[in-house]
Structure formats: structure tokens, C-alpha cells
Design a protein around this nucleic acid. Sequence first.
DNA 1: AAATTCTCCTGAAGGC
DNA 2: TGCCTTCAGGAGAATT
Length: 270
Amino acid sequence: MPELPEVETTRRGIAPHLEGRTVKGVVVRERRLRWPVPVGLDRTLRGQRVQGVERRGKYLLIRFASGTLIIHLGMSGSLRVLPAETPPQPHDHIDLCLADHCLRLRDPRRFGAVLWTRDDPREHKLIAHLGPEPLSDAFSADYLHQYASKRRVAIKSLLMDSKVVVGVGNIYANESLFMAGIHPQRTCNRISLARCERLVAAVKQVLAAAIEQGGTTLRDFQREDGKPGYFAQQLQVYGRGGAPCVACGRPLKETRIGQRSTVYCGRCQR
DNA sequence: AAATTCTCCTGAAGGC
DNA sequence: TGCCTTCAGGAGAATT
């Protein structure tokens, strides 16, 4: 499941193969994604040159002179650069064809999205109201503390709210809260500035480390499976309910917050 | 306004 | 072995 580190790794992987290249054609085999894939993408993009590949939160932005292709990978989406004429496999929904290669979107669960906007993508409905990037200075302890003071949800829910900060999915919310020693159920307006400081630092550290590892595990973005290696590796709590806490050895507890699997240590996290 | 629940979908895992 | 059920999850939409 693509979290921000994997989306960023994908961006870095595909950008050199796209930027400055001209689209030869677009093939849409399945347009029933989260929202219908716009009709006429082939006509819109054929002959257009890619000006840049950017990211905002978990949205990838492929910029052209006449507009921007907005791509979200949802839960099961992946983008790979393949040699032209590579036969499509099941769930390979869209190809962006270049001279010698194609950018191919695969998304078995179809929670992803491919949209087109002619306007500034930063003003797009889905993007305009997003919170700050987690690795930017705008995501600070002061910012989080102030935002948290106005709300009464569990801190984990706050972290995963894209209006508060983008890119912190379920896995990294669990990991960050463990690292910061904060109980995921704790009401967000009852966390001190000092503890917000720890939490913000933890989020940045976890995401930065994952991007670094995503870079190694996904460097060969043409490979068939694209399974992120950093998942299984250094996870301290996610997926480890009942297993011993790496810090104190007590069994990790598992519960649900907002329909999401939540794992924590009842002793280390308060 | 804020908080909570619902919804989309398929593959994996578990039960019998 | 095979069929059935359950579950996971991003995040906007709908509901409370």
C-alpha cells in the first residue's frame, strides 16, 4: 500500500523517464477507478511534452503545457516504466506511451484515481485544502499543538487527517506514536507542546527513513512485483499486535481507531 | 463545525 | 482441495 514514501520514491523513479519526453498516445483499458478516468485523455495528451513530475501529499502531478495529470495510487496502485509493447497484465488500467517506453498504472482494487485539470493543480478541489507536507518546516510542533488544541479526536485520527498534515497513513501513524511514546487514543487537545515536539520529530524521522529505504527497495521500478521492502523491515508496532514490545517486552495491544487497525504498547505509550 | 460512519474494490488469509 | 467468509485500507462523501 503506497504511503508517502512510496509515492515519493515512485516520483523519483519515473520523473527521469518522463520529463522532456513527448506523449505518443494514451491507452485506457479500464476507466472505473475511484472516479471515472476522463474521456479523451489520448486526444488531450498526444504530442504534449512532459514539463515536470511533482508530488503533493500522495498525489502525483504530471505537468504539461495545457494542464496537469493528477494521479493517486489509492491502496494498491503502482506506476512502472516498461518497454513499449509490453503486454498488459490483469489490472493494468492505463498506459501513458512515450517513444520507447510506457508509464503503466496497475491498480487491482481501483481505489486510485487519474484526473486531468487545465488549471493550477494546487487549486484543484482535491488538493487545495490539504495540510502541510510532513517533511516541511510548516509541519512544526507549534503548528500541530495549535491545531490539536481546537479538536477533540484521538491523536492518531488527527495525524491521519490530510487537512492537518498530508501523507501520514495508518502504518506510519502507528509507528510515529510508538516512537514518540504517545497513546494513539489520547485526546489530541491534551498533549503538551513538548510532546507534540516529540511527535513531529518522530513523524519526520519515520517518513524520512522510509523514503531512504524506499529508494533502495524500489530503485528498480521496472521490476514486476514492486513490493516495498521497508514494510516488513523496521516496523516496531504495525502488524505486531500481541507480539512483545521492542522496548519493554510486554505484549503489544491491538484495537481499532476510525476503522483502522491500531497497535500500541500500553506501558510505553501514554 | 466537528466527529463518525459509509463507501468503493480485490486479494490474502482463515475456517470448515 | 475447495468454497465460503472476513478483513485490510485512502480518503472523499454522507450522515449524525
